[in-house]
């Protein structure tokens, strides 16, 4: 044994580490372990919602390929391209229940798909609970408004309006 056997004043703190900041009367601050279950942790965040949302993105995506590409083709390419688009063109298409149904489905699927996609983006990038809350509130409001307005227009469209 070496001569230097003076016991350290605080157990566990050697002389190299300098003066002890904490001791029995001044314990180190308690740091909550990450991912620990506390009273603030929600009891369960499981459920099938995220799975349903994930599935919906794939399924609506497949349908949207047909709906959106078909839509773009008709509107922008075929039969003279954009120059033909006007009130009369829209009125002519919406005279048929088939195109009404097409547009209604496209509206709902694209809006829900896009809104759910943005919800994921907000979950990924907004870190503070309050930021998340506000961004999602804005998103859901805009989504509901657009879907309802679009649906209203498709169903109540009057080709004879002046």
């Amino acid at each position: 044994m070496s001569a230097d056997t003076t016991p350290a004043k605080t157990p566990g703190v050697g002389p190299v580490e300098g003066v002890a900041v904490y001791d029995v009367d001044h314990p180190a601050p308690f740091i909550e372990a990450p991912r620990k279950r506390t009273s603030k942790t929600p009891r369960s965040t499981r459920g099938n919602f995220e799975m349903a949302a994930w599935l919906f993105m794939r399924l609506s995506g497949v349908v949207l390929v047909v709906l959106v590409l078909g839509h773009l083709l008709i509107q922008l390419v075929l039969d003279g391209g954009v120059s033909k688009i006007g009130f009369a063109f829209v009125a002519g298409r919406w005279a048929s229940p088939f195109w009404q149904g097409w547009d209604l489905l496209m509206l709902w699927l694209a809006m829900l798909h896009g809104a759910n996609g943005l919800r994921t983006v907000i979950n990924d990038y907004a870190e503070r609970p309050n930021t998340r809350l506000w961004l999602k509130g804005l998103l859901y409001t805009a989504t509901v408004f657009t879907i309802l307005l679009g649906t209203l227009v498709i169903f109540t469209f009057d080709p004879n309006i002046r």
Binding site: T45, R46, G47, N48, F49, E50, M51, A53, W54, N123, D124
Partner: peptide, 8 residues
């Protein structure tokens, strides 16, 4: 199947 599980 959690909100912070595989679906993220």
């Amino acid at each position: 199947n959690d909100k912070d599980g595989v679906w993220r």
